[in-house]
Design a protein around this nucleic acid. Sequence first.
DNA 1: GCCGAATGCCCAA
DNA 2: TGGGCCTTCGGCG
Length: 264
Amino acid sequence: MPEGHTIHRLARDLRRDLRGTAPYVWSPQGRFSADAARVDGAVLEDVEAYGKHLFWHWATGEVGHVHLGLFGRFRIHRDDPPEPRGAVRMRVEVPGTTVDLSGPTACSVGPPEFRDGVIARLGPDPLRTDARPDVAIARIAGSRSAIGSLLLDQSVLCGVGNVYRAEALFVAGIHPARSGRDCDTAELAELWQIIVQMLRAGVRANRIVTVDRGELDLPAGARIRRGDATYVYHRATPCLRCGSAVQTVELAGRPCWFCPTCQR
DNA sequence: GCCGAATGCCCAA
DNA sequence: TGGGCCTTCGGCG
């Protein structure tokens, strides 16, 4: 589930539901119990997203940190708190809303300096209005690494994962194995804009849909199915635009799907 | 019931 | 570079 759009959408929803409240915070599974006790009953002042990281700002001055990793997931319940389903690491309850977190790579409570340290290791986040595209562009343009690897490197820019890297490079017409140095600045500026638009659409829809509806033969109002939602990512059928067979190349240890005709 | 895969990342060698 | 970790879910017997 989680690339940057998921985390920013969560921050937005959790702010709406929980900001200014003093929730009951505990750990049904038990692995978060000691940290939960430090903020249980405190007022939640804000929830912040930065790349794939989520920060909970408590009135105690402490900051909760969550990273979903590959499997982490939040579930929000509107009715009475249900029996915890599976391994619920953290449960946050206010009247009318229960937020369950399972499977995170990271879930802890610490001082604000911990948050600052995490952010210091991240490149600009395309979903934040204060992001500096020039920083990411300079890092890519100065690197001999493949651009497909650089897009997964969270210190170059943050929030992009394996789906968006493939999709953004397809729309930009850039072959994922091309060296960062061999991309020109205008091309990279356009790539940044593509990433911004894709991630924003993901926040809005709360799912990844990168294809333009107009390129699909769909009845008006029909939901885009999962297999049709991406141009190249995990695509078994030929390229939507040119009919070439979609290929993969291993970059940063993970397969990157691309179209050998549309991407040079 | 078991196995593998999944939109991630860290660490040891 | 390879293994480990976190969990859920669908496919296969």
